[in-house]
Simulated scan of single mutants.
Amino acid sequence: MIDKEEALKFLEAYQPLPSDSELSKNINILNIYNEVRKCFLAHYDPRCIPLFLNSFGGRNGFGVYQLIEDVLKCYPSELVIPFIKLALHSKFESVIYWNAQIAISFSDNFLQENLINLINHHNVDIRYAAILALSRMPNQDYKEYLKTRLIFESDNDIIELIQELLENNN
């Protein structure tokens, strides 16, 4: 089993992890990443929060990325949310996408402006995740932005999601 300091060093070295195609060539990295995840499930250390939030490489990490949220839920929202906000500005689309996904579980108006900006992102997956995260926000001010986005949106799944949110939440 990996200890906390080794786990932190590993995460620091992978900001973010390689893409899934690269990970498939070196599955050991993913195995260690999963051990790091387990380490921080067992051992509380808030230093892992920003490191995990910026560790997401391309695509889905063969199912391990979905499990990182379990680690983050061990920490108070007020510790996690500011780091999500920062990660939503990453230069890596995979980091932005996964943080928008995580924002669904950490719904807080503090993230709303960042998520509104992402509904115009060129990546359809990021737009979809941002809209879902916005739909969980206590403050419903984002709806006007969705109405505007609907005019320009070309993806049928997003159009359907926006229409459903606007119809169900009037």
Rank of each mutant, 00 (worst) to 15 (best):
Leu67Trp: 13
Glu69Ala: 11
Asp108Phe: 04
Asn54Ala: 05
Leu79Tyr: 14
Asp157Trp: 11
Phe106Leu: 01
Glu6Cys: 04
Ala129Met: 10
Phe106Asn: 02
Ile96Cys: 02
Tyr142His: 11
Glu12Cys: 04
Phe52His: 03
Leu51Gln: 03
Tyr145Pro: 07
Ile2Lys: 10
Glu22Tyr: 12
Ser24Glu: 14
Ser107Gly: 01
Pro50Asn: 06
Asp108Arg: 05
Tyr33Met: 03
Phe152Met: 10
Cys74Ala: 13
Tyr145Ser: 10
Arg127Met: 06
Tyr14Trp: 11
Asp20Gly: 06
Leu67Gly: 10
Thr148Asn: 13
Ser24Leu: 11
Tyr44Ile: 14
Tyr65Cys: 05
Arg59Leu: 14
Leu88Phe: 01
Val95His: 09
Asn28Gly: 06
Ile96Ser: 07
Ile131Thr: 12
Pro138Cys: 02
Pro76Thr: 01
Leu118Asp: 07
His43Leu: 10
Phe10Ser: 00
Asn99Pro: 09
Asn28Ala: 11
Gln15Asp: 02
Ala7Lys: 07
Leu11Glu: 05
Pro46Ser: 09
Lys143Glu: 03
Gln112Leu: 07
Asp20Thr: 14
Phe110Val: 15
Leu150Phe: 07
Glu167Trp: 14
Gln101Thr: 14
Arg127Glu: 06
Leu161Cys: 08
Leu134Phe: 09
Glu12Phe: 05
Asp20His: 12
Leu161His: 04
Gln15Val: 02
Lys4Glu: 12
Asn169Leu: 05
Ile162Cys: 00
Arg59Ile: 11
Arg136Cys: 05
Leu8Ser: 02
Ile29Gln: 02
Arg136Met: 08
Gln140Asp: 08
Glu12Ala: 04
Met137Asn: 14
Gly61Met: 13
Ile96Arg: 06
His122Ala: 08
Ile68Pro: 05
Leu165Gly: 01
Tyr128Leu: 15
Asn117Ser: 15
Val95Asn: 07
Lys38Phe: 02
Pro76Gln: 08
Phe83Thr: 12
Gln101Cys: 15
Gln15Asn: 00
Leu134Glu: 12
Cys74Tyr: 13
Lys25Phe: 00
Tyr33Cys: 00
Ala7Trp: 10
Tyr75Glu: 04
Gln140Leu: 01
Arg149Val: 06
Glu93Leu: 08
Ile159Asn: 03
Asn31Trp: 14
Leu67Cys: 12
Arg127Lys: 11
Phe52Arg: 06
Leu53Gly: 08
Glu113Phe: 08
Phe83Ser: 13
Pro46Gly: 09
Tyr142Gln: 10
Arg47Leu: 09
Ser77Val: 01
Asn139Trp: 02
Ser90Gly: 04
Gln112Gly: 01
Ile151Ala: 03
Asn117Trp: 12
Phe110Cys: 08
Phe62Gln: 09
Lys38His: 08
Ala133Asn: 09
Ile29Pro: 04
His43Pro: 09
Ile119Asn: 06
Leu150Asp: 02
Thr148His: 15
Asn123His: 06
Leu23Ala: 02
Leu166Ala: 04
His121Pro: 03
Leu150Val: 01
Leu146His: 06
Ala130Lys: 04
Leu146Lys: 08
Leu51His: 07
Glu144Thr: 11
Glu164Asn: 14
Lys73Leu: 13
